[in-house]
Design a protein around this nucleic acid. Sequence first.
DNA 1: TCATGCTGCTTGCAATTGCAAACGCACTGG
DNA 2: CCAGTGCGTTTGCAATTGCAAGCAGCATGA
Lengths: 175, 175
Amino acid sequence: MALPKVGSIGEYIREQRTQAKISLRQLAAAAGVSNPYLSQIERGLRKPSAEILNQIAKGLHISAQALYVQAGLIEDREPDSDVLAAIRADNFITERQRQVLIDIYESFRKENRVGAPEEDARTAKNAPPSPEPHESDAGSSPDDESPLPEEFTAALKPYTASSVNGHVTPETKEG
Amino acid sequence: MALPKVGSIGEYIREQRTQAKISLRQLAAAAGVSNPYLSQIERGLRKPSAEILNQIAKGLHISAQALYVQAGLIEDREPDSDVLAAIRADNFITERQRQVLIDIYESFRKENRVGAPEEDARTAKNAPPSPEPHESDAGSSPDDESPLPEEFTAALKPYTASSVNGHVTPETKEG
DNA sequence: TCATGCTGCTTGCAATTGCAAACGCACTGG
DNA sequence: CCAGTGCGTTTGCAATTGCAAGCAGCATGA
């Protein structure tokens, strides 16, 4: 298990390099690494550090992210929705908060996507994946100050109590 | 320039770890690295490879991307897209779920603003000024000894299923 | 034929990573 | 008072990274 995915990333680099029609030495120079080392990387004999990887990405003029994904260092994130992208790009929240937000959002979607369980069928009915007509702007009542939490566990309780509960529209039930 | 941002990433990791209230050894075990090595990383004495970085990110339950950015291995992402706009535009979730998400996000931002006199948008790069992990201990679960985020996801399920999705007392109509 | 220049590859070697073991410190409790 | 447990840190050491130097093969040209 010495070379798990290392090989694939080496191939990927070589592929990109040949595609760019530049020599190994050229890329090595552009990336600021030695030619022999780059050679070894491309053949999977060495596992480049993140720094080297980054430099190679720069030298290849490709996104470092692509390389990291190839190297298995970053999960290939599915472009589910813009919400996740926005959350991930947001700078106003801490990492932990970000993670919680993502977890919550994903749990929502998972909840809505309930495959076919009869029990949850009705709950799912509330949130059909397709066109749930949220015609109401639902404007998120601007002046409705909810006693929002500061911690997760703390955060969740008040929700069910005030914010969420207080905004229910029972009519959504189908007759 | 031997240690460019290594120090900062170590601090960042330690910050996240203490924020998560887990010990160095715990994180080391969760991340699959040795405790002494993690200690050295946090103090900037060692420059962890991408693989280790990735494992640490997993152990911390934060996005590996954030760590790479902190390590200077990935260019900082675009400033910030509007999370709220994305949430409002999303039609994979119900109105109630949308409301919860918005409330949570805003509460997070409000929470982060505790030590920030004015709009610190630009100053806040990737980590808010001083989030002050001062959990008000509002929850204080009885036998809660898992400060890990998984606790939250677990905590989310019941509440997404029942409270949010429509198992609430509908009498609380908006009026 | 030899010289020059290009391609990529192999070979030692210093520097670094990453770990197992052990250390010092604070706390608990028999 | 000393054993036991937790914390973070320090200390050698094997394994690896990453590089300078050198090697072999294939062109072009005098």
